[in-house]
Amino acid sequence: MSSALTRVAYAYDRLRAYPPEVAGRIATAMGSALQVRGEEPMLLELGVGTGRIALPLIARGYRYIALDVNPAMLEVLRQKAAGVMRKVRLLQADARAIPLPEESVHGVIVVHLWHLLPDWPKALAEALRVLKPGGVLLEGWDQVEAEPECRLQERWRALVEAEGVEVERGRHRRRLAEVEEALKRLGLKPKTRQVVAWREERTLREALEALQDRLYSFTQAVPEEVHAQVMPRLWAWAEGEFGGLDQSFRVEKSFYLRTSRLG
């Protein structure tokens, strides 16, 4: 496993984590949506990452299959869940080819994944294939508003595009709409609700580190050499524009959950 993958996994775990009370609210909403009777629920999460969704559910005793294609993400999760691994299975695999039998889980969790997969219909078909009758697809996403961070991201985009590389923004939101339409065509009735809203404080340095480590999907299609060229310019611009990089700003966040039940 490369040191770069490991470094990014730890950066993701630190910079994209939910506050404990928020993670608990999300876990409660997902658990309530299962509606399983007569047997112990089994959950599968696609693109589990380092476990920000998984760990509160694992701690509540759910049987859990944590799938991710990235071994470094799974290793961080394994370390964090070391004391509660009895009911957890870590599965390094591609969400577009889930190595599980049909109708084997009660819930499939997908948070911030669809937009990372160009051939997302394969992953959606696989998610529905492994769901038991009456099982539920649980899709989650964040909505974030933070003006200073938006300025940093837009400046990064402008610097990249000045190097002749186009940056695609908004794919996540568009993909959520495409998946919803696909679910409706299959006869399902997806229902969306806001689970929790909260505020966080973040420093400009942390926002720059998130860009530096390419934790956002819109950064990942940019060639590494271009990204490496523009980041020193972005750091310099931010220091000149904002002053000290350790000053904090407020981030308004909310988490949405979309549920689609089979049968």
Rank of each mutant, 00 (worst) to 15 (best):
L34Y: 02
R205T: 10
G47D: 04
R174C: 05
V84P: 09
L262N: 08
E181W: 13
R63A: 08
E102D: 15
R78Y: 00
A127E: 05
V226R: 12
L124Y: 00
G263E: 10
D13T: 07
V88R: 11
K191Y: 06
R78I: 00
E154R: 15
P118K: 13
R37W: 08
S32F: 08
W198Y: 05
H106D: 15
A23D: 01
V222C: 09
G24N: 09
A197Y: 02
W141C: 00
K132M: 04
R63E: 08
V196M: 01
Y18F: 12
P20H: 06
Q35T: 06
H227L: 03
A66Y: 02
D13K: 13
G61E: 02
G135Y: 04
M42Y: 09
V195C: 09
M1V: 10
A238E: 10
E166K: 15
Y18C: 00
W237F: 09
Q35V: 11
L138T: 00
A182E: 14
R16C: 04
K191G: 09
E102P: 15
Q220F: 07
A81H: 04
E178W: 11
A207R: 02
Q143A: 12
E147C: 03
A95Q: 10
G135W: 06
T6Q: 14
A95C: 14
Y64Q: 08
A221P: 14
D68T: 00
I98C: 03
P121Y: 03
V230E: 02
V230I: 12
L113G: 01
W141M: 02
E75M: 06
Y62A: 07
V144R: 15
L152M: 11
D213W: 13
V251T: 06
L257Y: 02
M42F: 07
M1Y: 07
V196E: 03
R25I: 04
A177R: 15
V251W: 00
L159E: 06
Q212R: 15
V160W: 10
R129W: 10
V144K: 15
W235A: 05
F218C: 07
L100N: 07
T259G: 07
R202E: 13
